[in-house]
Design a binder for these strands. Structure first.
Lengths: 204, 204
DNA sequence: ATCCTTCCCTAACAAGTGTTTGGTAGGTTA
DNA sequence: TAACCTACCAAACACTTGTTAGGGAAGGAT
């Protein structure tokens, strides 16, 4: 959650920044960060490569700003859920629903995060990714443990495995989810929760 | 399943090829295909960049060979399962178990497939990726539908959403799975199936 | 009219990219 | 010994990469 200070040596309007970051995020998500040239971003945005450096001081800083603003918003939602004092099952439900809402709002950023965070975590500049991941694990794993203790969740499952499955399946949805594509985030969350909580098999 | 013909203008020993492909796959999986330079692969393998071109005719052809051999082996296993004439639930169980076995055997290739297949599908050279995905969807979706018809699986879930969830959750495991890390593929499959089929909530 | 700020362009840079060409050490075969 | 093959190296190639420097057009403020 404590992300980076955004020092840009420029007077620029924040509106234009957001526009450019949005198209950059789109391209990053579509082709991957490394495969994305700064010229391709500029092309998509309708200006020349060098002109991007009026708004940002490097390609990496664009990525940085995309990811950090996404994580800031994500934790705003998560913290609200965690502070609500819900029971374990209700907390899981709220976290999942909130996650799908974030995917809806930051589809590109989530896709980038999914693909690149594994390498970026090593870089000092992206330290906040490691922090976020740790906080993330603590929240989810803690809730699952609380649920097992309260006999809301089964005790015979490996809790770390369960955590990984739940976590990954939520976020990979960003790779196929398209806003306005028939399913609302809440609808997807409902279906997903129904499957994870109750299973897909018919109860006998 | 019908993959590429492997024309390499060289008399080379297939043993050395497999060695080099294995290290290339490792590097691709760790840093991503585009971020991986051919010099880094050569470095890791203990030779110079140009020497790789004695064994392969391009960086892309290495990727091609890695993915196609993986998919060939995968479909060998899948086809055997699908031809066994099992019931829907047993088919799902067998497919999931087989998938985790493939992740165990081809961890690097699966990780690469996960990250890169989305872009590669567009390239004519990797047409077989699209074919495989279609066949994959047909097998899984068909089995799920069969299960719903036979009252083995719940009828109130969106079957396409369920398919995506199940599919993704299986394969993302490649991002954290490490062979010889406490959990065998069969153990992971068992836990995963228990969760997906019966849910994590306590039955009331 | 002058100045200043904002936003972009032109043109180039140094480094790194995948790939090719020609050569060569060392073992195998004739 | 001579010819040959395998597997590599050394050095360069053409191109792409992220980034920078200097300039200029448009418009508001003075």
């Amino acid at each position: 959650m404590p992300t980076n200070k955004k020092k840009t040596q420029v007077t620029a309007s924040p509106e234009r920044r957001r526009e450019l970051l949005a198209t950059a995020a789109e391209v990053f998500a579509a082709h991957g960060y490394n495969a994305t040239t700064v010229r391709k971003i500029a092309d998509e945005a309708g200006l020349l490569a060098g002109s991007l450096y009026y708004h940002f001081d490097s390609k990496e800083s664009m990525l940085d700003e995309i990811l950090s603003t996404f994580l800031d918003e994500l934790w705003e939602g998560y913290d609200a859920v965690l502070a609500a004092g819900l029971g374990p099952r209700e907390t899981i439900e709220a976290l999942v629903t909130e996650s799908f809402r974030e995917i809806d709002r930051h589809r590109a950023a989530v896709a980038i995060y999914q693909k690149e965070s594994k390498h970026l975590v090593a870089l000092p500049r992206f330290q906040y990714l490691a922090d976020s991941q740790q906080k993330f694990e603590k929240a989810w794993l803690g809730t699952l443990e609380r649920g097992v203790a309260a006999h809301a969740f089964r005790a015979d499952l490996d809790i770390r495995l369960t955590y990984r499955f739940v976590r990954d399946t939520v976020w990979v949805a960003a790779s196929w989810y398209r806003p306005g594509g028939g399913h609302s985030p809440e609808e997807i969350a409902r279906q997903y929760l129904s499957m994870v909580l109750d299973g897909i098999a018919v109860r006998t």
